[in-house]
Design a protein around this nucleic acid. Structure first.
Lengths: 193, 193
DNA sequence: AACCGGATATGATGCTCGTCATATTTGTGA
DNA sequence: TCACAAATATGACGAGCATCATATCCGGTT
């Protein structure tokens, strides 16, 4: 049997990606090195290249993994809400103070968005795919999904969510952070677009 | 006279900050080193600490300078528009394709926003001040500025502008980039909020 | 119980980083 | 024209970086 060997290596591989997906949201794409990443995974730096072709290859996996997890979390939140209130629940979670604080487990676009244009093509490709999934998820929460204008509205909703979260984390004035999140939440909530 | 000496050093100081404010928007806060920065300014790396106490001190000056210039540019654009159409002109510029492409001379919050939470307190302080000026500038373009709700609307407008620009730069699909900018522009334009 | 091969560790390479002490150049007033 | 002081350059420090060649370990098969 080859399985046990493969699954052991696979498990370590997963663990590295998992640890990295948090560490990189916390410290930025360039903010943590291979050695520290491996140490956080309980390994030493040398074995890294048995798992990844390069550092960029890891970053691409991280972008994909973090994006997928973020979309899945929001999907679960929307699906768990009463009928017709999926968007409201999603927004309430995305624009919450806990999400503002939880950079390393939260939306990777908010944590890394302005670093994306500088990343390797493989990283941007993975991130773009997940961003499209997010736009789709938001769009599907509206009853008129598919009708003209609904896609545009989803784009704007995602832009506002993201912008408010990025700003609320950027500024060093907690009062302003709260105002930004709350204003965006109120403005986007389905009472009136 | 001490003036000529002082003004020579001051001029070099300014040149370093100026070069850095572009280079850092292009490469990120951690994406360029002191030596390369000095080389771009036509100097060698050693003299850096005659001008700045530390690298972070430069970053704080950069955040302040870039933010001030960006606000001033938008202010000029709004002031140059026909009466009552300042916001429209401002948005059209901010959400234009040229601005999407011009990372290193454009809005520093869009270029560096998600890196802000990790910066030194002095950097965040400078950035926050400029962000507040931007919110104020946007708010002042509305006739009901000062009335209840106007400030909240300005917050949401800035969040949407920023989010749309960050996203349009992040994704590697030019079609999606265009859609994001155009959808945000349409949604924010004063025909209907 | 001994061994084999996949998984991880050790250690080293050449490079770049921020910082600083010291030398050299440069512009300016006498 | 000379000399002084301010401005900039040289060169070095220790640390950290990505990457890789080699050595060691350990689980599973015979």
């Amino acid at each position: 049997m080859k399985r046990p060997a493969q699954s052991r290596k696979e498990a370590t591989h997963e663990r590295i990606v998992d640890v990295a997906s948090r560490a990189i949201r916390r410290s930025g794409y360039q903010g943590i090195g291979v050695a520290d990443l491996m140490k956080e995974a309980g390994l030493t730096h040398g074995g890294f290249y048995a798992h990844f072709e390069s550092r960029d290859a890891l970053l691409a996996e991280v972008a994909d993994r973090a994006g997928a997890e973020s979309v899945a979390t929001l999907e679960r939140i929307a699906a768990g809400a009463p009928r017709g209130r999926g968007l409201e629940a999603l927004l309430r979670a995305y624009l919450s103070k806990p999400h503002e604080k939880a950079v390393e487990t939260g939306c990777p676009v908010a944590a890394l968005g302005s670093e994306m244009p500088r990343q390797a093509p493989e990283v941007r490709r993975a991130a773009t795919r997940r961003i499209k999934e997010l736009i789709d998820l938001v769009g599907r929460q509206s009853p008129d999904w598919g009708e003209p204008g609904a896609h545009e509205r989803a784009l704007v909703t995602v832009a506002t969510m993201l912008g408010a979260l990025v700003l609320s984390r950027a500024v060093d004035d907690p009062r302003l952070s709260d105002s930004l999140r709350e204003a965006a939440l109120k403005s986007l909530s389905p009472a009136r677009g």
